[in-house]
Simulated assay, not measured.
Amino acid sequence: MRELDSDGFAALVESIPHAISVHDRERNVIFSNSACAALIGYGTEEFADLEHEQLFHPDDGELWGAMLARVLGTENPSATAHLRIRHRAGHWIWVRVAASTFTADTERLVALVLQDESDTIWGNPTAARQPIR
């Protein structure tokens, strides 16, 4: 099987219509696609400069930390939960966050896939599954 070089990987992730970002263990943004920028309202460079704590709702901080601990631990390299993210315009959006880890060269990276579920959850707050799956 042929391997994708970094340009091929970037082209693949950019073509996917879901918001995707890749982060290092220190939470620095390595890559994000235009769907991610469209979802949260920040350009890719602005997004890269944000701290995760600036994006996630303060009440979701513990859940977010538990997700990261889970995917960076050795037990389970993936986790999914509903979290609120602050859009650049200032309002909150509910997203389903799927986090997983992978290794590139020798570095372990975290991939996030975000799906807007605001319409569903604002109409039915109990639809937000808080436990990490």
Rank of each mutant, 00 (worst) to 15 (best):
99 A>P: 01
76 N>L: 08
89 A>G: 13
80 T>K: 11
80 T>V: 13
100 S>G: 13
84 R>M: 06
97 V>R: 04
95 V>T: 15
99 A>R: 08
108 R>T: 14
80 T>M: 06
64 W>S: 11
102 F>V: 01
108 R>C: 04
95 V>D: 08
86 R>D: 02
67 M>T: 13
84 R>G: 05
83 L>Y: 02
106 T>A: 10
64 W>N: 10
76 N>I: 04
87 H>E: 11
96 R>A: 07
82 H>S: 14
78 S>R: 11
71 V>S: 07
99 A>Q: 09
105 D>T: 11
85 I>W: 15
107 E>F: 00
66 A>L: 03
71 V>L: 05
92 W>R: 05
79 A>L: 08
81 A>N: 06
93 I>H: 03
101 T>Q: 03
108 R>N: 03
109 L>R: 13
72 L>R: 12
104 A>H: 10
109 L>C: 09
103 T>L: 10
76 N>K: 14
64 W>D: 10
100 S>L: 04
73 G>C: 08
79 A>V: 02
104 A>C: 11
100 S>V: 01
108 R>Y: 00
86 R>H: 09
97 V>T: 09
69 A>M: 04
99 A>N: 05
64 W>R: 06
82 H>V: 11
95 V>S: 10
76 N>E: 06
108 R>W: 00
94 W>T: 07
79 A>Q: 01
81 A>L: 10
100 S>Y: 03
108 R>M: 09
71 V>A: 01
108 R>A: 03
102 F>T: 08
103 T>R: 14
95 V>E: 08
93 I>N: 04
77 P>S: 02
87 H>V: 14
107 E>D: 14
105 D>Q: 14
66 A>M: 12
85 I>D: 12
90 G>E: 03
90 G>P: 05
80 T>I: 11
96 R>V: 14
79 A>W: 00
68 L>M: 08
67 M>P: 00
84 R>L: 06
81 A>T: 14
74 T>C: 13
87 H>W: 12
77 P>Y: 06
99 A>H: 00
75 E>I: 01
78 S>P: 04
76 N>R: 15
86 R>G: 11
85 I>S: 11
104 A>N: 09
94 W>L: 02
69 A>K: 11
104 A>S: 08
77 P>N: 15
91 H>S: 08
74 T>M: 13
78 S>F: 08
83 L>I: 14
70 R>Q: 12
77 P>F: 07
79 A>K: 00
86 R>V: 10
83 L>N: 09
106 T>R: 15
100 S>D: 07
67 M>K: 09
92 W>F: 00
78 S>Y: 06
69 A>I: 03
105 D>N: 12
86 R>L: 11
89 A>C: 13
89 A>Y: 07
82 H>N: 14
84 R>Q: 12
87 H>M: 13
76 N>H: 14
107 E>C: 02
67 M>E: 10
78 S>C: 07
83 L>H: 05
94 W>C: 08
72 L>K: 06
96 R>K: 13
79 A>P: 04
82 H>P: 00
97 V>L: 13
68 L>K: 02
74 T>H: 14
99 A>T: 06
